[in-house]
Design a protein around this nucleic acid. Sequence first.
DNA 1: GTACGATATGGAGGGCCACCCCGTTTTTGC
DNA 2: GCAAAAACGGGGTGGCCCTCCATATCGTAC
Lengths: 204, 204
Amino acid sequence: MPPDSRTTSPTRPMRADARRNYDRILAAAAEAIAEHGAEASLEEIARRAGVGSATLHRHFPSRQRLLEAVFRDKVEALCATAADLAADPDPGQALATWLGAIARHAVSNRGLAASLMRGAHEGDPTLGATCHTMITNAGADLLARACRANAARPDVSITDLLKLVNAICLAVEQEPDGVAQADRLLTLALAGVHPAGATGGRKM
Amino acid sequence: MPPDSRTTSPTRPMRADARRNYDRILAAAAEAIAEHGAEASLEEIARRAGVGSATLHRHFPSRQRLLEAVFRDKVEALCATAADLAADPDPGQALATWLGAIARHAVSNRGLAASLMRGAHEGDPTLGATCHTMITNAGADLLARACRANAARPDVSITDLLKLVNAICLAVEQEPDGVAQADRLLTLALAGVHPAGATGGRKM
DNA sequence: GTACGATATGGAGGGCCACCCCGTTTTTGC
DNA sequence: GCAAAAACGGGGTGGCCCTCCATATCGTAC
């Protein structure tokens, strides 16, 4: 959803050329990020979009904003998946499935993990609507259900869980067999290092 | 150990001024990396060291080399810790303790995780002696012992385990309460998401 | 102590980048 | 059509990484 595609709005609708450039930049950014990851050159994106670099910066004041716009629909899809899974008869399984889906998306869409990881932090008070908060909200229910069904430790937070998944994806996203690695590491983290049945706790 | 401090050596010893600059650069790099992480500006490091940027590049042909030199002693300490823990009566506990130690070091020494994560990969065939391989070798024993004591799943590799730890550290290293977060996430990953006693496996 | 060859140095410069300023062009509402 | 508002983009600034090569410094043999 580009900022002002809706015509009836408190803020004036976008001018036609602005909207066209906005879309072009988004398309070019998607391409470039797929090729070079979240650190893709903004100038190259502008070049590909056939737009001056100033225009890019006007539409997306920060790299994070651009990333969020690029991945908005993927994130929405993941949120929808979460909603579907909320009806799953096995809440523990549902949570695991969802985290797996995030991992799969994050590894095959370079830059997504980075986008999910950083909230609207650092003096960018775009209240709500960031990828980070969207995913967090979507996952909270899933985790709560899993907890209630005694399929997840009660002391684990959705924030920690997502941080774990994203950390894994970020770490393996530029390796050739990233998908396989992410899956293996996530499975490991969910099940724990100790063999099933061994004492679970850990002290240091 | 600077490359050629030893006087009896197949390669000629370093010239005194070269050695002085080498040390200065290392000190400046440690400072800068502590402040700005693994992506600290090389030019600023050279500036702080009072040397030209060419000198820095001559001594450390790549950022990775510089990181490895900066963190060499920390890594050696971790390896020594591993050696000590190899005598621990509880191999599972020993492994967990060691991984925790890595996490603590990695979070409080910004850049260490990044240095540990990347091996000598990408056309930099500095056979052996990289941080990555040192840590991997040190951990292999610990994991093998834990496995034998049935305190770790037999199908987990030391590579995966370290990747997990480093991923976590990389993800939280720039947050204010990084140490606490890293510890929480590592504990979670080691113990698993499922409450102790629940079925361990996960399918997707 | 001096002279000389080997070694190390660092400033200048090239290529790339993010970000901003401001004169110019395009769009829109009337 | 027209004027005001909105958007544009070339070009400038400053930062970064990295390399070249004329110069300075060191170690040594005498």
